[in-house]
Amino acid sequence: MLSLSNLSVTFTQYDRGLRRKQLRVITDLNLDVQAGEVVAVVGASGSGKSLLAHALLGILPQNAVMSGTMTFQGEPLTPHRCRLLRGKAIVLIPQSVGYLDPLMTVGPQVQRVAQLTGRTKAAAKTAVKKTFTRYGLPAKTFDLYPFQLSGGMARRVLVSTAVVTPAQLVIADEPTPGLHPDVVSETLTHLRELADAGRGVILITHDIAAALKIADRVAVFYAGTTVEIAAGRDFFTGKLRHPYTQALWRSLPQNEFLPVPGNQPNLEQLPQGCLFKDRCPWVDDLCREERPALRELNDGWVRCFHAEG
């Protein structure tokens, strides 16, 4: 349904005076999403996860330049098509209640989302009330302000904003941090249900453990690029392909709890060769010279010269 290949995003910033600074936030990113599946996008902060969502919705800041190809349902996703599709075919479930207008009650806000997909006011209102009921939100929630919602209610309201649209692609941006474990698993269940109903879901998160509970496939981001695309089960069967994914997996508290040494490269001056070379245990001269391309390996994808099945 969605396919991204060699997507790059560069920000142009003005440093001191008129000196321009190029910030390569996404480099040669590849990703594809099918209808009915949950694709988790995981990576450390600063790896370009949220910007990917903004790129898909065409809401990147004006100083951003995009290259590469995006296709959605077989047709190229141009900026013009982005504008037509966002909110209708492609929707965002935002991170927190901070993405709702603090001075407007939540019912009318979700209703507005439904109206923007072409429903009449009355139909939109019915749809919102039905969705709220389905998620076990009390009737008075419609007239509450965002600050009056508890963490769990807020999550359900935010998921409702996607449910009231007919969107085929749902992007959930960091839907779980800072929440009670019960709320986390509830939210994940809701996302899984969306996929089971035939929508494609991109779950953007840095919480691999949470993502693995529902994800069919996991795309691992590093410094704005996809280093590996693996099936969810590959994590448990030890079939991980890329050294970064392996290190990430080992760094989880329930595993070896070993930190990944080093930092992501400076986005202002991306190094020559592989973006992971400074932290890689397998690094050799080839990695320092040339940037590896994403290649298929064992039913998954990896961006590494030395990965073997």
Binding site: H54, L57, I59, R83, R86, G87, K88, V91, L92, P94, S96, G98, Y99, L100, D101, P102, L103, M104, R112, V113, L116, T117, T161
Partner: peptide
């Protein structure tokens, strides 16, 4: 603000954003 970014993602146009969220805030 974040809520205007979300409104944009919903397909709201500039004038409606000003009307529904801008003036209120």
């Amino acid at each position: 603000s974040d809520y205007v970014l979300f409104a944009l993602a919903q397909g709201e146009n500039l004038w409606n954003i000003v009307r529904y969220h801008g003036l209120r805030n």
